[in-house]
């Protein structure tokens, strides 16, 4: 369970989050929608521990622990996963090597046994097949020369292998065609169970046709201004975000 309580955060002098409060119980998928500049990406970076964001007030409790004090890698080990809006290229680093290093780093931190190359490859190949990707994906360098769609699929591959308790998808749908959108949705839906939860950040409603959320929140002006069922997304699509910030 993720509990965000009265979270304030700034970049330099600019206060971006002005008191976000939000609870995501296990097993639920919540969507955050909102206009550009509402603080959606800031929220995802603050949750995952990126440098340069200063939390001035509030707390974030994940499965009973205050994660704001934790390093990004420790948050990953605690089961948090951020699917990047712009996945980063790592020249010369093989995808399979990266995935295995990540998985074993997390397993080590959790006191679990590391996977050897054979066991890992079996796991990775199964995940690649499930996401309808070509096997040479594992041999390529991390995100280097990937199309936009391939980068997003690669995020889903990492998510499938790292099996987080909570996934944050930061506008993962941006720039995707409908087929790639479906792959992302399948990636999330495949993990859905009573323990897994997700925070889906999106500007558009269309991703939510494929990942049906339990709750939709509207973030505007650094605060949650409205929350409601999945149908709220459709309503927003029709009426737009105008007028929400003052609510």
């Amino acid at each position: 369970m993720l509990e965000i309580k009265n979270l304030h955060a700034r970049i330099g002098d600019a206060e971006i989050l002005k008191g976000v409060t939000l609870t995501i119980p296990d097993g639920e998928i919540h969507a955050i929608m909102g206009p550009n500049g509402a603080g959606k990406s800031t929220l995802s970076y603050v949750l995952s521990g990126r440098e340069g964001y200063e939390v001035t007030k509030g707390e974030v409790i994940f499965n009973g622990e205050n994660i704001l004090e934790m390093e990004p890698e420790d948050r990953a080990a605690a089961g948090l996963f951020l699917a990047f809006q712009y996945p980063v290229e790592l020249p010369g680093v093989g995808n399979a090597n990266f995935l295995r290093t990540s998985l074993n780093a997390i397993r080590r931190k959790r006191g679990e046994e590391e996977l050897d190359a054979v066991a890992f490859l079996k796991l990775a190949r199964a995940a690649v097949r499930q996401l309808a990707m070509k096997e040479d994906f594992l041999k390529r360098n991390v995100n280097v020369g990937f199309s936009g769609g391939e980068k997003k699929r690669n995020e889903m591959l990492q998510m499938a292998i790292l099996k987080p308790h909570l996934a944050i998808l930061d506008e993962t749908d941006s720039g995707l065609d409908i087929d790639a959108l479906k792959i992302v949705a399948e990636g999330v839906n495949a993990l859905r169970d009573e323990k897994f939860s997700a925070l889906v950040i999106t500007h558009y409603q269309r991703l939510l046709d494929h990942i049906v959320p339990d709750v939709v929140h509207v973030l505007a002006g650094g605060k949650i201004v409205r929350s409601g069922p999945a149908s709220l997304a459709l309503e927003l699509e029709a009426s737009g975000y105008a007028g929400l910030e003052v609510a």
């Binding site: 996963f81 980063v88 997390i106």
Partner: peptide, 20 residues
């Protein structure tokens, strides 16, 4: 940050990037 958000320590991240 990308490497660390995937569970790698800062030093392992540097090692990975440099080896690449």
């Amino acid at each position: 940050f990308y490497c660390r958000s995937r569970g790698l320590s800062e030093e392992d991240s540097v090692g990975l990037i440099v080896n690449g």
